[in-house]
Simulated scan of single mutants.
Amino acid sequence: MRLLLAEDEAHAGEYLVKGLSENGLMVDWVRTGPDALHQVDCVDYDLLILDVGLPEIDGWELIKRIRRNHAMPVLFLTARDRIEDRVRGLELGADDYLVKPFAFSELLARVRVLLRRGKQQESDVLTLADLEVHLLRRRVERAGRRIDLTAKEYALLLLFMRRQGEVLSRTVIAEQVWDINFDSDTNVVEVAIRRLRAKVDEPFAKPLIHTVRGFGYVMEERE
């Protein structure tokens, strides 16, 4: 199992690398957000341990970018102990959230749980009905037919596929896909979803992207 640790504090980083390595885990350690992003794009990690307060790109922004293309488990390890911060981390796509200071035994237990879960769920393909997204090849198919998407359309589809059955507001979609705070005068979300539907839904018998009036959009198979 290979882990990436994104932690800017030297003492904490050395402590974690030593402890995790002694327990049979390979650990790469980076100290800035851009370095973490580069490593995630270059190496297939089994788990990311992520501090919020990283230089240049903080943990909040980093997980948003990572979740567009990667499904690895993410554990936030941070001194930010407010309920609002925990909720934010989980809503942005983290699988767990551990507050500093912590007992190493608890961290190790959580790491092992996430690694087991990730191994059980590990797959190169996200599926819903007859729609398939092949992550490594960045290939989308429905009913065996290839669908060509732009980068933003692909990111939008990944967001829906990873959160199947969950109603996503326009605010969440805009933040996750475009890195913008939603402006009610902006129709970028509606335009993108219309274009995605034209490729993923309209040529086929059963739509998968549904509008939930007053709330947002959901991707799911319906009878």
Rank of each mutant, 00 (worst) to 15 (best):
residue 112 R to N: 10
residue 218 V to D: 07
residue 129 A to E: 14
residue 86 R to S: 12
residue 144 G to Y: 10
residue 163 R to E: 13
residue 129 A to K: 13
residue 20 L to I: 04
residue 133 V to Q: 05
residue 76 F to R: 00
residue 59 G to H: 02
residue 206 K to G: 07
residue 153 E to K: 01
residue 60 W to R: 01
residue 179 D to L: 05
residue 165 G to Y: 09
residue 105 S to I: 15
residue 91 E to C: 02
residue 24 G to K: 01
residue 116 R to Q: 11
residue 150 T to S: 14
residue 67 R to D: 14
residue 147 I to K: 01
residue 66 I to G: 14
residue 77 L to F: 10
residue 144 G to E: 09
residue 123 S to L: 02
residue 82 R to Y: 07
residue 196 L to G: 06
residue 145 R to M: 13
residue 189 V to W: 03
residue 21 S to R: 06
residue 18 K to D: 08
residue 211 T to M: 02
residue 53 G to V: 13
residue 49 I to T: 05
residue 163 R to Q: 14
residue 175 E to A: 05
residue 54 L to C: 01
residue 69 N to M: 12
residue 129 A to I: 13
residue 212 V to H: 09
residue 183 D to Y: 04
residue 26 M to I: 13
residue 139 R to Y: 13
residue 34 P to T: 09
residue 153 E to G: 11
residue 67 R to C: 15
residue 84 E to D: 13
residue 46 D to M: 02
residue 110 R to N: 07
residue 132 E to M: 04
residue 175 E to S: 08
residue 132 E to P: 00
residue 179 D to M: 09
residue 216 G to R: 04
residue 98 L to M: 08
residue 139 R to Q: 12
residue 135 L to M: 13
residue 103 A to V: 12
residue 80 R to A: 06
residue 169 S to T: 11
residue 218 V to W: 06
residue 135 L to V: 07
residue 183 D to R: 04
residue 152 K to G: 12
residue 14 E to V: 02
residue 221 E to S: 14
residue 106 E to Y: 07
residue 33 G to Y: 03
residue 48 L to W: 10
residue 161 M to R: 04
residue 14 E to A: 08
residue 115 L to W: 04
residue 126 L to N: 06
residue 194 R to Q: 13
residue 104 F to G: 01
residue 221 E to M: 14
residue 111 V to L: 07
residue 27 V to E: 00
residue 30 V to A: 08
residue 166 E to N: 02
residue 104 F to S: 03
residue 29 W to Q: 02
residue 175 E to H: 05
residue 21 S to G: 02
